[in-house]
Design a protein around this nucleic acid. Structure first.
Lengths: 146, 146
DNA sequence: CATTTATGTAACTCAATAAGTTACACGAAT
DNA sequence: ATTCGTGTAACTTATTGAGTTACATAAATG
């Protein structure tokens, strides 16, 4: 299983907006930090807006977090970008006339759900505030090494 | 993130082999339970063999589990099929000259690792024996409803 | 208030990858 | 010896995420 870079990129976007909240921040500028295109950034910002995590206004380069960073968890961002997609893929169909094929999907589905919930619970323990603080601490250390 | 059907299919294969251990089981037969092709099944069986979970012999339709079903966890199968691929994708590169871009990969990597371990721990709690038993119980219930 | 700047979004291309197919060498069973 | 089955390489196809182009519309600016 693999979670696409959309998730990482969305966290990146939110962290960037919060850290640089005092200056103008266009999708172009954010894109250059992620090293992707501005359109991709805008698309992701659209998801974050729909999820109620971000406020944006067309035409104005002034995105704002819709909540305090301490109230946004990685799980919130996960749902905003990945929705309710399953973490583990089940087959579309297996042979219903076979004992194994006829039952395994349901059985595995239950176990997968447990593993997924477990991962999500962990993501829910970390807030955007934690991420930002850790980024700033790391940067401070780098600066002190120069 | 999404784990491919290879994982589900591999568990399916192992469960099938164990349940039908008294009769001849060719890749063709297993494929018809999964509703896929025999070559795909053989490829997966190759992975399981490499991981030390399955014994197969070229030419003979008699695959055997290499361990007792109670000693094979879903995590073992996970590693056999998915290896050590990350659960969450990080960007290949972000702008090192930006405070956010220069630090976020390392920061997120740490949090991702925690979530991944959490999911894996859950997968490690379930054995092939559990899966097989649950399949058989479900089947028994279905049969009793006829 | 006209011009510039920026967002929001649709439509398309491109690349990566999982799944499925064909082909065939080689081992095992009969 | 012939048939059956595995192991594997090489190819095709489908899906999907990422990136691009284009443009309508909203806000900022001088």
């Amino acid at each position: 299983m693999r979670i696409s870079t959309r998730f990482s990129d969305s966290i990146h976007i939110l962290a960037f907006i919060e850290i640089y909240k005092d200056i103008k921040v266009s999708s172009e500028v954010i894109a250059s930090s992620i090293e992707t295109s501005a359109v991709v950034v805008r698309r992701l910002m659209g998801n974050l807006r729909e999820a109620g995590l971000l406020d944006t206004k067309q035409g104005s380069a002034e995105p704002k977090l819709a909540k305090d960073p301490s109230q946004i968890t990685l799980l919130d961002v996960y749902f905003a970008t990945e929705g309710n997609k399953p973490l583990f893929e089940l087959d579309k169909k297996t042979n219903p006339d076979c004992i194994v094929g006829g039952n395994i999907q349901e059985v595995l589905g239950d176990y997968y759900e447990q593993a997924k919930i477990s991962a999500q619970r962990k993501l829910n323990e970390t807030t955007l505030k934690d991420v930002i603080e850790t980024i700033l601490v790391k940067q401070k250390y780098k600066d002190s090494q120069k």
